[in-house]
Design a binder for these strands. Structure first.
Length: 474
RNA sequence: GCCUCCGUUGUGUAGUGGCCUAGCACGCCGCCCUCUCAAGGCGAAAACACCGGUUCGAAUCCGGUCGGAGGUGCCA
C-alpha cells in the first residue's frame, strides 16, 4: 500500500473516530483492466496492522453494502439513466479510437481537448435506433458551458472555477458497463452516507464535476477535505520507482509500525504545539482537520528513522529482545551468544532492525581488518604498543576460570592489570577490542565483547591477532 | 498552453499586523562523557522566494514576478 494512501486512510480514520463517526472501507475497482491481483488483501492487511479498523467494509459487512464497487455494478446505471432523463447526461457513441485521434490532433495544435458534445445532438430516435442495433455506447455528463462553480474545502478554503474550464462531459458509464470513478464515488458516497470526503489535492479541480452530479441528482454535497501530497523530494511525489514508497518497504526494513504511523501523521499535520509523540488513540484525540497543511510535505526518511530509533529505545528490554531476536538469528544462528546481554548493548544502537545483522556479524566471524586499526591517536596506540598490550592482557584473561567468565570479573581483572602497569585504559583496551572484533566500532567495548565471545573464542582471536602483529612488526 | 493550488533554515513545522534581533523537532557541525560506536549532556551554524504597495509598524494584508505541484483520460 502506497504511503500516500496510507496517510489518507490514517487521517480519514482519525477524523471519523474523533467525530464519533464510522470509518468505512470501500474498494474502488471499477477499472477492470488495471486490477492487480491481491491488491485488496494488501489493503486489508496494512490497515489492520496499523490498527485502522473499519466499522463497515467488504469483509465485515454493514448496512449499505456491498462495499466493493465491482459488486455494485448494477446500482449505477439507473442513476445514469435518470440523469439522461433529466438532461444532465446523454448517450455517446463516439469510439475511443476516434476520441484519441481528436485529442492527439488537438494537443498537437497546443489546445486543450474537450469533448464537443457531438452526441448530445443526436435525436432520441437515432439514439434508440443505435442502442437497439447494439452499437457500443457510454453515458456522458452534460456539463454546463458557462457560469462558475464554487465550493468550500476545509483545508483549502473557498474554491471557484469557471464551468467552461473546469467542467467537461466526462464519461459516467463506460463501454464495459462499469461506472467511472468519477461517477461511482458520487453515487456510493451518497448511498453510503458519506459526510466527509478526504482525498488528495489531485481532486481539487475535479470536485466541481462531482458537485454538478450531486445537484443534478438532488443530493446533499459532502464536506471536502483535500490533502496535500506526500513528496519524495521537492519535485517528486513518493512513487513506486523510488522503492521506498510502500508501507511494506519500511516494515520489511525493520521500521516499527507505531513509528511509521506516528511520523506519517505529522507529514501534513501538526498538533499546534511541540508535541511529537503520539499513539494512535492519542492521535484520534489530538487530530484537528483545521491544522492540516496546504503545502506538500516531503517524507523525510531521516526523521522517520529518528522516530523509529526513539520508539526502539522506549521499548521494554523484553519487547526489544523479542523483536531483535529474529534479526540476531539472521547472522548468529547456531552461535553461542548471550542474546539478553547483546540485546541490552544493542537497544540504544538500533535505528532500524535491518541494520542489526551487520552490526553483530563480527561475533560469529572474525572480519578481515587492517592493522592500521591498531593505530589510534587519541588512545595513544600503534601496532607495537598494541602487541605489548595484548601480550600483557593475555595471561590475565587466561587466568580467569571458565566459570568466572563474567563481565564484572573480566572488567575487574583487566582494570587491575592495566592500573598496575600505569597504562591508560584506552591504550590496552583499544587494542584488545580491535584484536577480538576487527572493527573500528562495535556495540560495547572490549570487556563486553570478550564476555559475549566467551573465553575460548576470545583467547583464540587474541592469539591470532598477536601473531599477525608479531609477524608484521618483525 | 490553459485552469487550480502552494511558497518560513537542508527537512517537517510554529507563527493569523507589534509578544519575531522568527520558536520547536530531525539532520548537520563542535564540545563534554567515554576502552570504540551509540545513547546522554552542552553549544553553534542555518529560513520569512523576489519586487512593489497598504500601515506608525508586515513572515503575517493587497498586487505583480519567479519557482514548484496538481488537473486538463471510457485511471483512480
Amino acid at each position: 500500500m502506497h504511503l500516500g494512501g496510507v496517510r489518507t486512510a490514517l487521517y480519514a480514520y482519525l477524523f471519523a473516530k474523533q467525530q464519533g463517526g464510522q470509518f468505512i472501507l470501500r474498494i474502488e475497482d471499477t477499472d477492470q483492466v488495471r486490477l492487480v491481483p491481491g491488491a485488496t488483501e494488501v489493503i486489508y492487511d496494512t490497515l489492520r496492522e496499523m490498527g485502522l479498523n473499519w466499522d463497515e467494509g467488504p469483509d465485515v459487512g454493514g448496512p449499505v453494502g456491498p462495499y466493493i464497487q465491482s459488486q455494485r455494478r448494477d446500482t449505477y446505471l439507473p442513476y445514469a439513466k435518470q440523469l439522461v432523463q433529466s438532461g444532465h447526461a446523454y448517450y455517446c457513441f463516439c469510439t475511443k479510437e476516434e476520441l484519441d485521434e481528436r485529442r492527439a490532433a488537438c494537443e498537437a495544435r497546443g489546445e486543450t481537448f474537450k469533448y464537443d458534445k457531438h452526441c448530445l445532438h443526436l435525436s432520441p430516435e437515432e439514439v434508440q435506433r443505435r442502442l437497439d442495433a447494439g452499437e457500443p455506447w457510454v453515458i456522458r455528463m452534460n456539463a454546463p458551458t458557462e457560469g462558475e462553480s464554487s465550493y468550500h474545502d476545509i483545508v483549502f478554503g473557498d474554491m471557484t472555477f469557471q464551468n467552461a474550464e473546469a467542467l467537461d462531459d466526462m464519461v459516467l458509464i463506460k463501454q464495459d458497463g462499469m461506472p467511472t470513478y468519477n461517477f461511482a464515488n458520487v453515487i456510493d458516497d451518497h448511498l453510503m452516507g458519506i459526510t466527509h470526503v478526504m482525498r488528495g489535492t489531485e481532486y481539487l479541480s475535479s470536485t466541481p464535476r462531482y458537485n454538478f452530479l450531486y445537484r443534478a441528482l438532488g443530493w446533499e454535497i459532502p464536506q471536502y477535505i483535500h490533502l496535500p501530497p506526500v513528496m519524495r523530494d521537492e519535485h517528486h511525489k513518493l512513487s513506486k520507482r523510488d522503492g521506498d514508497a510502500y508501507y511494506s518497504d519500511f516494515i520489511d526494513k525493520g521500521y516499527l509500525k507505531d513509528a511509521l504511523v506516528n511520523y506519517l501523521a505529522l507529514v501534513g499535520w501538526n498538533p499546534g504545539n511541540d508535541r511529537e509523540f503520539f499513539t494512535l488513540p492519542e492521535l484520534v484525540e489530538a487530530f484537528d482537520v483545521s491544522r492540516i497543511t496546504k503545502s506538500p510535505g516531503i517524507f523525510d526518511v531521516k526523521k522517520l528513522t529518528w522516530f523509529n530509533a526513539e520508539y526502539i529505545r522506549r521499548m521494554s528490554p523484553e519487547d526489544y529482545l523479542a523483536a531483535v531476536t529474529p534479526w540476531f538469528d539472521k547472522t548468529l544462528e547456531g552461535v553461542k551468544i548471550d542474546y539478553v546481554r547483546l540485546a541490552q548493548l544493542m537497544q540504544d544502537r538500533t535505528e532500524i532492525f535491518s541494520q542489526v545483522p551487520d552490526m553483530v556479524r563480527f561475533l560469529k566471524d572474525m572480519p578481515d581488518y587492517d592493522l592500521e586499526l591498531y593505530t589510534h591517536k587519541k588512545m595513544k596506540t600503534n601496532p607495537e604498543i598494541s602487541l605489548q598490550a595484548l601480550d600483557m592482557l593475555r595471561p590475565v584473561l587466561e587466568g580467569i576460570p571458565e566459570a568466572d567468565w563474567l563481565e564484572q570479573t573480566i572488567h575487574d581483572r583487566l582494570m587491575a592489570a592495566i592500573a598496575e602497569r600505569g597504562m591508560k585504559n584506552g591504550q590496552a583496551l583499544w587494542p584488545l577490542r580491535i584484536a577480538i572484533s576487527g572493527l573500528q566500532s562495535t556495540p560495547g567495548g572490549a570487556v563486553e565483547i570478550a564476555y559475549l565471545l566467551g573465553k575460548t573464542r576470545t583467547l583464540a582471536r587474541l592469539d591470532q591477532a598477536a601473531e599477525r602483529l608479531r609477524s608484521a612488526l618483525a
